[in-house]
Every structure is written in structure tokens, then in C-alpha cells.
Design a protein around this nucleic acid. Sequence first.
DNA 1: TCGATTGTCTAGCGGTGCTAGGATCGGGTC
DNA 2: GACCCGATCCTAGCACCGCTAGACAATCGA
Lengths: 192, 192
Amino acid sequence: MSVQERKQRERAERERLIVATARELAEQQGWDAVTTRRLAERIEYSQPVLYSHFRGKREIIGAVALEGAAEMAVALRAATSAADGPRGRVTALAHTYLDFAARNPAVYDALFRLDGGLAFADEDTPEPLKDAFAALLESLAEVAGDGVHPGLFTEVFWAALHGLATLTRERRLPPEETGRRVELLVDRLAVL
Amino acid sequence: MSVQERKQRERAERERLIVATARELAEQQGWDAVTTRRLAERIEYSQPVLYSHFRGKREIIGAVALEGAAEMAVALRAATSAADGPRGRVTALAHTYLDFAARNPAVYDALFRLDGGLAFADEDTPEPLKDAFAALLESLAEVAGDGVHPGLFTEVFWAALHGLATLTRERRLPPEETGRRVELLVDRLAVL
DNA sequence: TCGATTGTCTAGCGGTGCTAGGATCGGGTC
DNA sequence: GACCCGATCCTAGCACCGCTAGACAATCGA
């Protein structure tokens, strides 16, 4: 049994290596540079090894996305729990979200822009994704306003943040005014 | 001279054919299916002909984007001029925007999701893009609220619409509640 | 020690965007 | 009308992509 266990451990370790390497490469040079050949070379195995862990490139993106979702949830909760008052929490939430997107563009892409084969807003949505949404909802529910469904409010707020994050990063919005945009968004959307 | 003019005409005509065919193919089967080989085959020329009109695939996407921007501006202005009152205009604007994105996913992608090599929010931004933003601004300026820069307000509103459009289409938001999300967005963001 | 299983690699398939270089066609000139 | 020359277009091919079949080697159980 011990031998099998060791092999399983090593296999799991290699899988982590693949995901970490893919993420690293994507952050360094963008997802276009994450080819199966380059990835295989970096982990010092041949291409087919990747396919013994994942169905294909899409699943590797999905794995990076799940990792990112967990980290984002942690970051959001840390920021909101350190802030004071409803307004402070929502502002911190917004800034943390945008900051995460800006600092981890490849992870953000894996999560919300690329196809990682993950189900969203569904019963079989992976737990980390549900939890990241829950982290948003926890802080936003208190400012949704009377008679407004917290989930719906969270969706709208999230969509606005997502729009700002993506348009800013693609230089479709000038990045200088991000602070004022967040201020406006929070002032208007949140019922304080 | 007449011969040269005829050749120029034919050349311009072929360029239109390329853009129209690329757009059609993208709407039918997605941008991934728009390969230079398939596109060349559809226009009944060889691949290199494409490169005598455009620097590469990216520029073809850009051309489709410009076409789409002009159409979107027309659609937005038509919808808002037919609506009554500030609230009616903003609501119509939002629905028209999301409707355009849903009905022309490939064009929307070319405009706001893919890299068409176009400059945004810059002095050398192509005129159709500036004009589409202007169409948004025209209706949104009247509900920006006192002391809020109309341009900044438009950017935030646009980002929110963009987030809703993209997340809904990628099934990251359930599509059923779009109406209620727009209602909430307009109610909160616009000063009526 | 031997066979079977597991793991990994080499090699290759059909596709991609893009381009070099040769063929062909048509207009302008004698 | 014959010729030249430049513009125009195509064939063929480059290096790369995601992915996989099949050969090979290492390891396990009997």
C-alpha cells in the first residue's frame, strides 16, 4: 500500500506543479504563451503527461481559476473584515476586487474571461466559485436596500466591477480615474 | 485614369467582402472558426490576398469592430430618441445596449473583448468608437447628477452594462433576470 | 525470474497565422 | 500588333498549435 500511496502523492504533487507552472507562465507572458509544449518543457516532462492529469488545456485553465477563486475569496473577506461601517466595507470590497484583477490578470482571465469548462450560477458550480460569490454577497447584502434581493444586487454590483476591471485592463478605460469611478459606483449603488 | 479607378473600386469592394464575410462567419460559428484559410475560401481568393488588404487577422477583427460601433451608435440614438423622459431614455439605452450585445455577439466581441488593434480612450481613437461613446454620453449626461462629470458617469454606466453583457452571454449570470438587473441599475445609478 | 501492468516518450496528425517566390495577366509603349 | 514591365495572385511552405497513437522502459506481483 505504501508504494501506491507514495505514487499517488507524487502524482498529486506533479499536478500542483502543472497548475502552478501554467499560472506562472500565464502571468509572465499571457495565456497565449501557455502552450502545451512550453508547459511540458517547464515541468520537465513530455506533452502527453499533461493529458494524463487534465483532459486538455481548458481544464488546466479551469484549475488555475479554482485556485484563484479561493484566493480572491480570502482577499475579499480579509479586506471587508478590516474595514469599518457598511460604506467602508463596500468600498474596501470594490477596491480589493479591482486590485486582485489588476495584480493577477492571468488568474482573473482564467476565472472570468476564458473558458475553463467550469459551470457558473448552477447547482454543480464548483465550491470555490460559489464561495467567492458568497464573499461578495456577505458584504453587499447589508447595502442592497429594502425589498431588493441580495443575490440580484450582488450580481449587478459584481457585473459593474467586472466591467471596470476588464475595460480598464484592456486600456478601454483610462486607468487614472479608477478611484473616482469606484467612489461613484459605491455612492450610487449601495444604500447606506 | 479610368482603369485605375475601376481597379480601386474593385479593390474596395473586395475589402468590404472580406469584412462582411468575416463578420458573417464569426456570427455563425464564432471567431475561432474565422481562420484565414476558411475566410479566403469563402471569398474565393487565396490566403495571401487577405494580407494585401489587412496586416493580419487582428486588423480584420478591427474592421468588423468599427462597422459594429457605427451600427451600435445608430441603434442607441434611435432607441433613446423614441423614448420619453430621462428615465425612459436611460432604460431604453440600457436595454438596447444589452440587446445589441446579445444579437450580435461576434461584433460585440470584436468591439469590446477581442484585440482588434484599435486605440480606445485616446486621441487617435477611430471616429466610430468615439461616436458610439458619444451616443452613450448624450443620454446619460442628463442623469449624471450634480457635480458628477458626465464622462466619468458614462464610463461607470458603460462598464456596468459591459459586465452584464459579457457575464450573461458566457452564462456566468443566469439570463432570466436581466430585466430586473437593468431596472436596479437604472434606479440606482441614474439621478432622476 | 518472468509476465503483466503502468508510466513515459517519440513521432506525427491536422490544424493555425503568416510569407517567400514564382507564374500570370493586363496596360502602356514602340 | 508585339513586346516589356509592373501589378496581382497563387502555390508551397515555415514554425507553431492542441492533441494522440503506438513503441518502449521501468516496476510490480506471482
